[in-house]
């Protein structure tokens, strides 16, 4: 582990390397965070089974310090969106995301979570969870094999490594805004879209033009 932490800009004598590590605050901060990313225990569809396989003995993501899957969003750092996001489910997903404490990450696992997947054309399917919540890593595949998911998790760790304590959003003075929770109407309504919806209605003069063409 020590080698991970050693800042390249500091030369530690050979004989002291096993005892002393000189590092930057960023490095140790990121090292701590990347080695204990707790995912939320939260499965949506087929991909969730592969996620369980990653947690099981063959692929075993406890090797990355991720084995503590928390069923509660309050205790988790990472949301693995593993499966098809439906319109009926997205309000809950957004709510869960809002409840996660910072720093929080989202990994979209599989084609469905990334961009709709094979069921994209369906009337109850959201074309990608990133339409609603920000996604950090996308793992393509249907389903991604457990090794592909591990690859995605390693990518996430690499992303964490690049962050700096000075610029991360969760130490900014202003608190980050929660994402407005979608509403189930005659179809899914994103509160952010309501102005457009109203504007569209206002602009429609001819009643025989369907709005949704």
């Amino acid at each position: 582990m020590g080698d991970d932490l050693n800042g390249p800009e500091y030369q530690v004598p050979e004989e002291l390397r096993s005892h002393i590590t000189i590092t930057t605050l960023d490095r140790i901060y990121n090292w701590g965070r990347r080695s204990s990313v707790w995912p939320m225990m939260f499965g949506l569809a087929c991909c969730a089974i592969e996620m369980i396989c990653v947690a099981a003995s063959r692929y075993d993501f406890s090797r990355f310090g991720m084995e503590v899957m928390r069923p509660s969003p309050r205790q988790s750092d990472l949301m693995i969106v593993s499966g098809t996001v439906t319109k009926k489910m997205i309000p809950q997903i957004v709510r869960l995301y809002n409840q996660m404490p910072e720093p929080k990450y989202v990994l979209a696992m599989g084609a469905c979570a990334s961009g709709g997947g094979p069921f994209k054309e369906g009337y109850n399917v959201v074309s990608g969870v990133d339409k609603f919540i920000p996604v950090d890593v996308y793992v393509p595949g249907c389903p991604p094999t457990p090794q592909a998911l591990l690859n995605g998790l390693i990518k996430l760790q690499e992303k964490i490594d690049t962050q700096s304590i000075r610029t991360v959003r969760w130490y900014k003075r202003e608190a980050s805004e929660p994402i407005p929770i979608p509403i189930l109407g005659p179809d899914l309504i994103d509160p952010r879209d309501i102005p457009i919806l109203d504007a569209k209605r206002a602009s429609v003069v001819k009643p025989d033009v369907p709005e949704n063409s």
Binding site: V137, Y138, V139, G141, Q147, A148, G152, K155
Partner: peptide, 8 residues
């Protein structure tokens, strides 16, 4: 299969 990316 190692196709994970940051942007889609």
């Amino acid at each position: 299969y190692e196709l994970a990316s940051y942007d889609r």
